[in-house]
């Protein structure tokens, strides 16, 4: 199916820390948008998974955050910025299996140390910046074939 995209289509959602019931809504909105635009299913899946993991990180660790997306004829760029504790050692945090999640988070099915690796794996370009005590910004680009 031909892509129906002209210029850049933008959108954003506010993310609320600790709110497990609305977590995933921003990813679902993006998914719906991409489907409307005729984007291939596997690309939508990658974008939705990467975005959902990023959303969950905000819900689990931060007070609040924003998700912005930009869809162009070349691909999707997703930026998630949060007001959270920040990550002291990004190299360690990117390691599969490493997690600082407390027990209650693990009991809810998160914190297996796969979130950041999962985001990276589903992106063509993945960047992460973090300042301890201020917050974390993740940017992911998924190119259209």
């Amino acid at each position: 199916m031909a892509l129906n995209i002209e210029g850049t289509i933008e959108g954003s959602s506010q993310l609320i820390g600790g709110d497990f019931t609305t977590a995933g809504e921003a990813s679902t909105l993006l998914k719906v948008k991409l489907t409307e635009l005729g984007v291939a299913e596997d690309i939508i899946r990658r974008a939705a998974i990467a975005t959902f993991e990023a959303e969950m990180n905000v819900v689990i660790y931060a007070a609040a955050g924003w998700l912005h997306y930009y869809i162009s004829p070349q691909g999707i760029r997703i930026r998630i910025e949060d007001m959270g504790p920040g990550i002291a050692d990004i190299g360690l945090a990117m390691q599969e299996g490493y997690s600082t999640a407390p027990d209650w988070v693990r009991e809810m099915g998160w914190g297996a140390g796969m979130g950041l690796p999962n985001m990276k794996r589903n992106s063509d370009v993945f960047t992460i910046d973090s300042v301890v005590g201020e917050g974390t910004t993740v940017e992911m680009v998924i190119n259209f074939p």
Binding site: F20, F52, G109, W110, A112, M114, P117, N118, R121
Partner: peptide
Amino acid sequence: DMMSAVLYYHSPDSLLITGLTQLHV
């Protein structure tokens, strides 16, 4: 029961067997 594992190892048309019942599942 770990949702990131479900997101990581998913296959099309599959069934999830889990002990978690929250909305985010």
